[in-house]
């Protein structure tokens, strides 16, 4: 019977390599989902602040729905519906169906969920910008896009960062839910390894350590980034 460390060895018969590959999948989905979620959030925040009444209400429906329905339900729903919807949209514009990879579907699902939360975080951050700064930019005749890039984005970031940091940490943990739809991320491969070897404790603990390491490293980096961003801002 192999001992704990043999089981976690990087090359077969150890399962460490499989675990790390799953971990890499988790990270990819988290980064991709969070990145797209930010884009959705940015568009959503602008829509909520500057959009017409219909846009505002539709966005309110989106953010309320996503925040009130369990992530697991959303993930299962979107995972199955996502490819259908995409192919429907493609056939409307006259393109043939495409195969959606598991990774692509996973990123899409996480992005839609995180996009709703990011919308709220970014909206709050934009609202925290002193109106005078935006008015001044307008007075100088800045185009909306230029103003967004040069004024709103940099001014809002320090306000948005704490909320976005939380979202990132939540995203990394939400990727575990993709195990339920059979995406080979860390939690699923851990269960496969545990089931195959019957050493449930060792593998679940090992996966826990990996997740914890990701969280703690992220915390450290984000705190540094936040300090840098806050340079030149009034204390408090």
């Amino acid at each position: 019977m192999p001992s704990g460390l043999d089981l976690l060895a990087l090359s077969p018969p150890g399962w460490g390599g499989v675990l790390l590959a799953g971990f890499w999948n988790s990270i990819q989905v988290a980064v991709g989902g969070f990145g797209f979620g930010l884009l959705i959030g940015m568009a959503g925040a602008c829509g909520k602040l500057y959009g017409g009444p219909v846009t505002k209400d539709l966005l309110a429906v989106y953010t309320t729905l996503v925040r009130a329905v369990p992530e697991l339900v959303l993930i299962v729903l979107l995972y199955f519906a996502g490819a259908d919807l995409l192919n429907l949209a493609l056939s409307v514009v006259g393109l043939g169906p495409v195969n959606v990879s598991a990774l692509g579907a996973g990123i899409f699902v996480i992005a839609v969920v995180q996009g709703a939360y990011a919308t709220e975080v970014l909206r709050g951050a934009i609202q925290a910008i002193p109106t005078g700064q935006i008015e001044a930019a307008r007075a100088y005749g800045m185009e909306p896009f230029l103003m967004f890039r040069r004024i709103i984005l940099p001014a809002m970031l320090p306000h948005a960062l704490p909320g976005l940091s939380n979202l990132w940490l939540i995203t990394t943990k939400d990727t575990a839910l993709l195990a339920v739809v059979g995406f080979a991320e860390l939690t699923l491969v851990t269960r496969q390894a545990a089931g195959a070897t019957k050493h449930y404790f060792i593998f679940f603990c090992a996966a826990g350590v990996l997740y914890l390491a990701l969280t703690l490293t992220s915390n450290l980096l984000l705190r540094r980034f936040e300090l840098r961003l806050r340079r030149g801002m009034p204390a408090g």
Partner: peptide
């Protein structure tokens, strides 16, 4: 710092 799903499985199957 760890996913709830993992905690549940650790408790139940572990």
């Amino acid at each position: 710092g760890t996913p709830l799903l993992l905690q549940i499985w650790l408790l139940y199957y572990g």
